[in-house]
Simulated assay, not measured.
Amino acid sequence: MTVQKFTGAGPLDWDDLRVFLELARAGSLSAAARRLRLSHATVGRRLAALEESLGRTLMERRPDGYVLTEEGEGVRALAEAMDERAQAIRRREGGQAGAEAGLGGTVRLTMTQALADRFVIPRLGALRRAHPGLDLEVIADNRTLSLARREADLAIRLARPQRGDLVGRRLATLAYGLYAAPDASDALVAYDETMAELPEALWLARHCAGRRVAFRSNSVQGQLAAAVAGFGAALLPCLLADGVLGLERCPQPGPPLNREAWLLVHRDRCEVPRVRAVIEHLVAIFTDERPRLEGDRP
């Protein structure tokens, strides 16, 4: 398959565009090569051929991977549209089998480790059954991955979006509480100093000042485990701590802490069918579980 080049100097090879698109999604030669089952050299060669054909630099190589240039962003948007149409043709030609398979392709979703492991991933089964051809890549990390640079398609973050090119939808309000083992001392379990500006850390500093901190961690699940082990009281999301054997909710010395969970997507990805399907499923599971998220029940 060939498509006409923007400069009119000849046809483009769809395989070059396909490799470029996967590299843009993956962000690294090694990841793109694994997904495409090609060698690193072939991926690099395909990118070079596409850039030479267009007469434009589409990607910059940086220490942390490949990043799209402004020209690359434009080419990616067109290549994404072509990929969606190609998948629609395959489904149409597949007849009933294609209809049953539903959407295809990969959607990359990023969120914190605790939210991914304890809440979202266990509730993705219905999405899998509805769209068995859809592949999900969940990047469970506390880092803020960039939607603008296509490090992920969707992000769940505990903050309202600030960028104008991101579309945000509030999923739920997450309630927090102080939890401790029944025989725990008056000490605290808290974040380490690298997380001192988080709302949870600021709340503890404001309302629990003067109490000994017996355990610190940059991991919410680590703090949960430390609280169960008896190190002290930890300020934890109710969705994570309610119902955990060996923990009980303690009286709080200040007003309750709540944080908003937002689903973010880059504006030009909102209507991509496979991304839209994941958005709708995530909205549904957060809506269904709202009482638990808000701390109303275990």
Results as ranks from 00 to 15, higher is better:
His131Val: 02
Lys5Leu: 15
Asn258Gly: 11
Ala31Gln: 12
Pro199Glu: 02
Val19Asn: 04
Met59Gly: 09
Val67Asn: 00
Pro161Trp: 10
Arg37Lys: 11
Arg160Thr: 08
Val213His: 04
Pro11Ala: 13
Leu12Glu: 07
Tyr191Arg: 12
Gly98Ala: 08
Leu109Pro: 06
Leu103Val: 10
Ala48Ile: 09
Arg211Cys: 01
Glu289Asp: 15
Asp165Thr: 10
Arg56Asp: 13
Ala284Tyr: 05
Ala99Gln: 14
Leu127Pro: 05
Arg206Lys: 13
Pro182Thr: 02
Arg34Thr: 11
His266Ser: 15
Val244Glu: 09
Ala140Gly: 11
Glu151Asp: 13
Ser219Gln: 12
Pro298Met: 07
Arg160Ser: 12
Arg56Ser: 06
Leu58Cys: 07
Ala140Trp: 03
Asp15Thr: 10
Cys250Pro: 06
Leu134Cys: 07
Leu178His: 00
Thr287Ile: 05
Arg160Gln: 14
Cys208Asp: 02
Asp83Arg: 03
Asp13Cys: 07
Arg163Pro: 10
Leu127Thr: 05
Asn142Thr: 10
Gly104Val: 10
Ala277His: 03
Leu134Arg: 08
Val19Arg: 01
Gly246Ile: 01
Ile156Lys: 04
Gly98Ile: 05
His281Pro: 01
Trp203Cys: 03
Pro291Thr: 01
Arg157Lys: 14
Arg276His: 15
Glu51Arg: 05
Arg90Thr: 10
Val138His: 06
Arg92Gln: 12
Ala130Val: 05
Leu38Met: 13
Leu36Cys: 11
Asp183His: 07
Val3His: 14
Arg90Cys: 06
Arg118Ile: 07
Met111Pro: 00
Glu100Ser: 09
His281Ala: 06
Asp183Cys: 04
